[in-house]
């Protein structure tokens, strides 16, 4: 009777609206750590300084049952106002920021600049043997860029984590709960 499909892991992007108070991030992270669920990416920042709300974007993967558990567990945390599974709710946009330092010389240096141009990355720092590029885009685009750069010299990479929002005119994650 149950639709008990053999479940495989699937990547989900979940947005959570929380009170910006001490310990709230620890609660969210502890919930994942305590149950052995994986966090692929996590970003958090205050989005409403009057109401003191923060929005957390979590990228995780799991079977349907695990994802449902995660959402239910997040939802029952007291400082959590809303939980939205952007992956399930329809098309959504995901963007990430990366800063990529590449140390090289000669041909590689020119090639790095050319590729950066193709990816619309900006050089925000330069020395005679290095660049720091700033790039935003989907996580996939960032992966591709980083892979190319790492072939062109020594690299150091930092990424900001995924932020996401649903496409279309619908307004989600406002606090309608209370």
């Amino acid at each position: 009777m149950s639709s008990q499909k053999p479940n495989s892991d699937r990547r989900h992007t979940i947005a959570v609206l929380v009170d910006n108070e001490p310990g709230v991030l620890a609660r969210v992270i502890g919930l994942f750590a305590g149950r052995g669920y994986n966090i692929e990416s996590l970003t958090v920042s205050e989005i409403d300084s009057v109401k003191r709300y923060s929005r957390i974007t979590i990228v995780t993967s799991g079977t349907d049952m695990v994802i449902e558990q995660i959402k239910a567990l997040l939802d029952r945390l007291v400082p959590v106002h809303m939980v939205e599974d952007l992956t399930v709710q329809g098309p959504c946009l995901e963007r990430e920021l990366a800063l990529v330092k590449v140390v090289n010389a000669g041909e590689s240096r020119i090639e790095a600049l050319r590729i950066a141009d193709m990816f619309r990355a900006r050089a925000i720092d330069s020395t005679l043997n290095s660049f720091v590029f700033e790039l935003t885009g989907s996580p996939k685009k960032l992966n591709a860029f980083i892979e190319l750069m790492s072939g062109l010299g020594k690299t150091e990479i930092t990424r900001g984590g995924v932020v996401a929002i649903a496409r279309g005119s619908g307004i989600g994650l406002q606090n309608n709960k209370t």
């Binding site: 009777m1 149950s2 639709s3 049952m65 558990q69 239910a72 567990l73 029952r76």
Partner: peptide, 13 residues
């Protein structure tokens, strides 16, 4: 009463 107890160990129809 607890959503996280439903479909945790056994799927509910």
């Amino acid at each position: 009463i607890d959503k996280s107890s439903i479909n945790k160990n056994v799927l509910a129809d």
